[in-house]
Write a protein that binds this DNA or RNA. Sequence first.
DNA 1: TGACTTATCTACCACTCGATATAAAAGTTG
DNA 2: CAACTTTTATATCGAGTGGTAGATAAGTCA
Lengths: 199, 199
Amino acid sequence: MVMGRPRSFDTDKALDEAMEVFWRHGYDGASLAMLTKAMGIKPPSLYAAFGSKEGLLKAALDRYAQRRSEHMRFVLAGATAHDVAERFLSSIAESHTDPANPPGCLLVQGGLACGAGSENIPFELAARRAQTETELRERFIRARQDGDLPADADPAALARFLSTVASGMGVLASSGADREALREVARVSLRAFAKGRDA
Amino acid sequence: MVMGRPRSFDTDKALDEAMEVFWRHGYDGASLAMLTKAMGIKPPSLYAAFGSKEGLLKAALDRYAQRRSEHMRFVLAGATAHDVAERFLSSIAESHTDPANPPGCLLVQGGLACGAGSENIPFELAARRAQTETELRERFIRARQDGDLPADADPAALARFLSTVASGMGVLASSGADREALREVARVSLRAFAKGRDA
DNA sequence: TGACTTATCTACCACTCGATATAAAAGTTG
DNA sequence: CAACTTTTATATCGAGTGGTAGATAAGTCA
């Protein structure tokens, strides 16, 4: 056991609350007052545990990535490239309209543009979005090796397309679109992966 | 002629500068200090001319819409649905990576999520994004009437798809993607509009 | 028990936020 | 010219910002 007074709040629960605030209001729009109230702690506890507002965001992003990693494992386990794309877009349609969370994607809502003193937040979010694209690209490279995608297919372009549609669906969901609307976008997007085409 | 001391700055030029600040930093991230410095005026002049920070944003959005309306006129004049989609996505790829402006789309960068006191900004931006989708939908309805789209095509779904890809391209561009990357996304997206398919 | 370590709370820091009161400046009109 | 109207700059408002100092509370260890 470690010495000293034990922490009186659950770090993960607090992070979930912080995540929701960042998700709903963005980094700049999330004030310390909002965050501490949602987390049920006072500023000194927040700073002792996470170092800074930016540190809190990064911890929340880590937790967000952890949550989504199981979804991605399922997505990447699809048998074919078309299967992977279908699983990916369906998963996005569901998660971005999950009533348990704010609408949209934390990696988009969190802050595409920030004010002075938060200039690196958009980079941080972009880097995390890029990771999903990388996972898809590598899966599609493998699909081409397997002969599942034709030799002249462009795995990078396909991955970027899916990642872009996912971001767009985040924007769409954040403006109030319902789940069926996102599913419809997913359905149309999938045509770019139709069997027998040059992808 | 009107009485009183004449305005010493050009309203449209000032709006262009304000637009750039909102574009780069978002509504919450754009402080009055940034805005007044970029516009070359002092706060009282800003408030006399635009009423409030929100009023300034709306004026900048009006100007943004005006700029893009000519592009949309060209887009909607495409001969076929496929033509319209191609023109639309190409236009987006160019404009979202135009070095004369901040990367991405003002209607996305401006603020998907805002803090307390700015809750209506995301709605305002969403309403303006929706207008483009409406224009595309109406064009595709006409295309179906003309027999250009098959009878079982879904103009609303196609328009929403394009609008979603455009938002996604805005996110992509804002994270530093170059013009060729956006063109590639446009190219893949167009497969959903391939001739002879159910769209 | 009492020394030690860590967390928590109250209160507050310097600063920035959006917005404005006031008065001087710059023009038109008689 | 003087009367009038509008815009300008200076200086500042109260509220809220992210962040912290100092004291106290709550646990472990000897």
